[in-house]
Write a protein that binds this DNA or RNA. Sequence first.
DNA 1: CGAGGAATCAAACGATCGTTTGAGCATACG
DNA 2: CGTATGCTCAAACGATCGTTTGATTCCTCG
Lengths: 207, 207
Amino acid sequence: MPSPQAALPTKERILGAAEELFARHGFDGASLRQLTAAAGVNLAAVNYHFGSKDRLIEEVFRRRLDQLNGRRMAALKKIAGEPDTTIEDVLAAFIVPALELSHDGNGSLFMRVLARAFAEHDDTLRKFLSDNYGHVMRQFTAEFARLLPHLSKEELYWRVDLVTGALTHAMSGFGMIQRKSDVPEHRHREQTAEHLIRFAASGLKSS
Amino acid sequence: MPSPQAALPTKERILGAAEELFARHGFDGASLRQLTAAAGVNLAAVNYHFGSKDRLIEEVFRRRLDQLNGRRMAALKKIAGEPDTTIEDVLAAFIVPALELSHDGNGSLFMRVLARAFAEHDDTLRKFLSDNYGHVMRQFTAEFARLLPHLSKEELYWRVDLVTGALTHAMSGFGMIQRKSDVPEHRHREQTAEHLIRFAASGLKSS
DNA sequence: CGAGGAATCAAACGATCGTTTGAGCATACG
DNA sequence: CGTATGCTCAAACGATCGTTTGATTCCTCG
């Protein structure tokens, strides 16, 4: 019985297996030999299609980050600057796309990859993340600043940073967040979003 | 000019260099050759004194975790069960020892090692952490449960998990938390503790 | 049908890893 | 003094890593 990915083109099969193995064993921990074996392709295929392992890592990031950033920015754009926008609305624009992604195919694995990337203090990886992620964080921070005008810039950065840490931690699946079998998928996602938003909003607004 | 550690015994020099290099490059990323060179000892010294690289990693953890857990439990014991204890008190018992450690010698590097260990989903490492860290988390969670009796068990676990994520993220130095040169060390530590405690308390107590 | 570029393959390359070895050195004790 | 004992050292071992090579297969298009 062929794997579900067996019919996909080689490049896609590599990206899928890479996402899974990077999440499970880290970037150094997952070797190209494991990876190509899991994908059912030849060892040399990675260097042929991507040039190097590092470029494969970047591609894994780019594919999902583009999705994630796109959805977040679209959701933010709808509410940014509006007079009746609440902190909860902005948090929802940040959190819901990530939860959607994390329940879509292998997307949840990507959130673990992302958490791992935060933990790696590797400079080139951090620069890559800053280049492809930083402008989104800045836009959201600007909107938080508008809704929390009494906070100093330093205080605001502090709180946004703490919110980011909590969400990254939670969504990469460290916690005990587990869907009960009698709760439908989309309902569980809503509940998760409610928990995260309530917690983060409370932390942001604390006097 | 000899390194500051030059006079220390070989075992201590290895542990110091290991803490630094593991924090900077990860457990796999830091090789025994870099490590022994940085410590100024022979390559074979690690296997002679510790048996293997894995046992060295465990020793790095044990040394600091014993400190950290000891101080946290001592601080908790003073306030647990007392009628006038607040959420903020419990959070202080959890946070202040970590901040003290992170400003004591190479201690701050250890918080990064710890964050890295959380990101690694390696089973043996997680079991080691659970064995040496889990009982502390359970004690703190029990005290939170006492002070937040209206929360369901599920809701409580959620919030404790989010607090843990925020604090791990913040204390491992991802954020922009930087001491200004005109603020004395101990004052900066107090301010950091205030930020963290206020944020976490607000998140825990949110209705 | 046949030429030609794209893709795949087994095999090998050099580098680096954790670990082991066995000789050499030091210090302490009879 | 001689000899154990604890430690350090340079050197080598086998394994595994990312990458490259050159031949082979596949598929498309004139």
